[in-house]
Computed example of a mutant assay.
Amino acid sequence: MQIGFIGLGNMAKAIIGGMLKQNIVTQEQIVGTAKTETTMEKMRKEFGIRTAGSNKETAAGADVLILAVKPIFFPEVIEEIRDEITEDKLVISIAAGKTMEWIEKEFKKPVKLIRCMPNTPALVGEGCTAVCVNSSVKCEDEEFCLKLMGSFGKAISIPERLMDAAGAVSGSSPAYVFMFIEAMADAAVAAGMPRKQAYEFASQAVLGSAKMVLETGIHPGELKDMVCSPGGTTIEGVRVLEEKGMRSAVMEALSACVEKSKKL
C-alpha cells in the first residue's frame, strides 16, 4: 500500500510520525509533495519518506491520498490531480469547512472519500480526530482510516452533520485551553511564583484533570464538586468564575466557531 500526502505541514507531520511510530506503514510506503523544496527536504531527513516532483505524481502512485493543504488551496489542487483519482483510490481530507459534497463536486465524479478533523495536540501524540465517510467507502477503508488517525491520539467516527461541532470542541478549543493555562500561570506569577514553574503547575493540572474525566468516566460536574470543600478556597474561585460568566463565554466562543465553520 502506498500513502500519498499533498501538503507536508504540521498536521501531515503528526500523521506521518504517528503511523511510522505505530508501524502501520514503512517509510518506503509514504510519498509526499509540498509547496517548497525546503519543506520536502526537511521531511525526507526527519522521516526518511520519499517526495515526488508534482502533486499529480503523488496522486497517481497513491492507494490512499491525504489532502493536507489549507482549504483555500483545495480547488487548484483538486483540479491538478482530478484525472489521477480513480474509483479504487481512497481520498482523505483534513480541511476544515470543506464538506464531502463540496469536495466531490470539485472532483466532478464519485470519489471514495473520508473527511477528518484532527487537532494540534496530534503533534505530541494526543490528538482527537473526528472521522466521517461517504457512501463509497467500505468498512475496511473506514477501519484503516481510524487506525491511521488513532496512531497519534483518539479517532472517533461521527456523522458529517456533527463535523462543525467537532471542529469547535476539539479543533479550535486547544487555543482556549492555552489561554486558560496562560491566565492561571499569570495569576501564579502575580502571587510570587517563577514563570516557568507557574506554567508547569498550570499545564500539569489541566493534563491531570482531563485524564480524570477520560479514565474515571465520572461527570465533570461531579469531579468539580469533589474538589470544592465546604467553605474552602476552590468554591470561592468557582463563585468568581460563575460571576464573570466563564461558562457562558466558553459556550459562546464554541458556538461562534461552529457558525464560522459553516461559512468556510
Rank of each mutant, 00 (worst) to 15 (best):
Y199H: 08
K21G: 14
I92E: 02
T216Q: 07
Q22F: 12
I6L: 02
P110G: 08
V137D: 07
V238C: 00
G125F: 09
T216C: 10
A60W: 02
S172F: 11
L67R: 04
F74E: 04
A183W: 06
S255L: 14
S261E: 00
I218K: 10
T26S: 15
S229V: 08
L214C: 15
S255A: 14
Y199F: 10
I235T: 12
I24Y: 11
K13V: 01
A62N: 00
A96M: 04
I66V: 14
V177L: 09
D164W: 11
F47H: 02
E143D: 05
K98Q: 10
E252G: 14
S172P: 07
I181V: 14
A256D: 06
V213C: 10
G53A: 09
A205F: 12
V240I: 15
G221C: 08
M246D: 05
I156G: 10
G237F: 04
T120D: 11
E79A: 13
E28G: 12
E140F: 13
T51V: 12
M246K: 04
I16D: 00
E80L: 03
N10S: 12
E259F: 04
A253E: 10
E200W: 03
Y199M: 06
E28W: 01
M163T: 05
M179N: 10
Q204A: 11
P174E: 13
V189Y: 13
S229P: 09
T234S: 12
T86V: 06
